Simulated scan of single mutants.
Amino acid sequence: MDVTLRTATMSDLPLIVDIYNQTIPSHQVTADLKPVTVDQRRPWFLAHSANHYPLWVVQADDQVVGWMSFSPFYGRAAYAKTAEISIYLDRSVQGQGVGSQVLTLIPTQMTTVGLTTLVAYIFSSNLPSIKLFKKFGFEQWGFLPAVAELDQRPNDLVILGRHF
């Protein structure tokens, strides 16, 4: 299965929200504890810009199977070349190498939008995501112990980063 990225459009937002909401019940991927709505995510969608902090859909066989975004790391000008990366895949394609293919596309995307550094925030219990990012040269840059509570249990946040 070969994947491509294309800039997300507003018509993609319901599917983006559906893919995101698939991850919530596991309490392994996102800090949201309840499903989000398209209306709630509209401002987030509009905050992305194709020329600096883009939001893409991941396509395989002309079907949207996930999404990836670069979001501002921190709201001050000195951090403008650093972004937070988020990747979410539909459960139907997880474990099939799609995440690896998406991460292979990152260096090209980075130069296109003028970014030099990516950070990923991943719960310590999400070992598949940590392993995936480390496979592509991300290193642990930070560790925040017990900063989230999921299923009434504390969870650590691992901060991975990479310079391009």
Rank of each mutant, 00 (worst) to 15 (best):
D2M: 12
V3I: 13
T4F: 06
L5T: 04
A8V: 09
M10I: 14
S11W: 05
D12T: 03
L13S: 07
P14S: 14
V17M: 02
V17W: 02
Y20V: 04
Q22K: 13
T23A: 10
I24F: 12
P25S: 07
Q28N: 12
Q28F: 09
Q28S: 14
V29P: 05
V29L: 10
T30E: 00
T30H: 03
A31H: 12
A31R: 15
L33W: 00
P35H: 11
T37K: 02
R42Q: 09
P43S: 14
W44V: 02
A47H: 08
S49I: 00
N51P: 03
H52S: 10
Y53G: 03
W56L: 04
V58S: 02
Q59A: 10
Q59K: 00
V64Y: 04
V64L: 05
V65I: 13
V65G: 04
G66F: 03
M68H: 00
F70H: 00
S71L: 09
P72D: 05
Y74A: 08
G75A: 10
G75N: 08
A77K: 01
A78R: 15
Y79M: 04
Y79R: 07
A80N: 11
A83K: 03
E84I: 15
I85F: 06
Y88E: 00
V93M: 15
V93N: 10
G95W: 14
G97D: 09
V98F: 03
G99N: 10
Q101S: 14
V102Q: 01
V102R: 00
L105T: 03
L105M: 14
I106K: 07
T111I: 09
T112F: 05
G114R: 12
L115N: 07
T117R: 15
T117V: 11
L118F: 11
A120T: 06
I122N: 03
S125P: 00
L127I: 13
L127S: 02
S129N: 05
S129H: 07
K131L: 04
L132D: 01
F133G: 01
K135N: 06
G137W: 12
E139H: 08
Q140L: 05
W141V: 13
G142V: 13
F143P: 02
L144K: 12
L144Q: 15
L144Y: 12
P145C: 08
A146N: 14
A146G: 01
V147K: 07
D151W: 13
Q152Y: 15
Q152F: 12
R153G: 00
R153D: 09
P154G: 09
N155E: 14
D156W: 01
L157D: 04
L157T: 06
V158W: 06
R162L: 11
H163K: 06
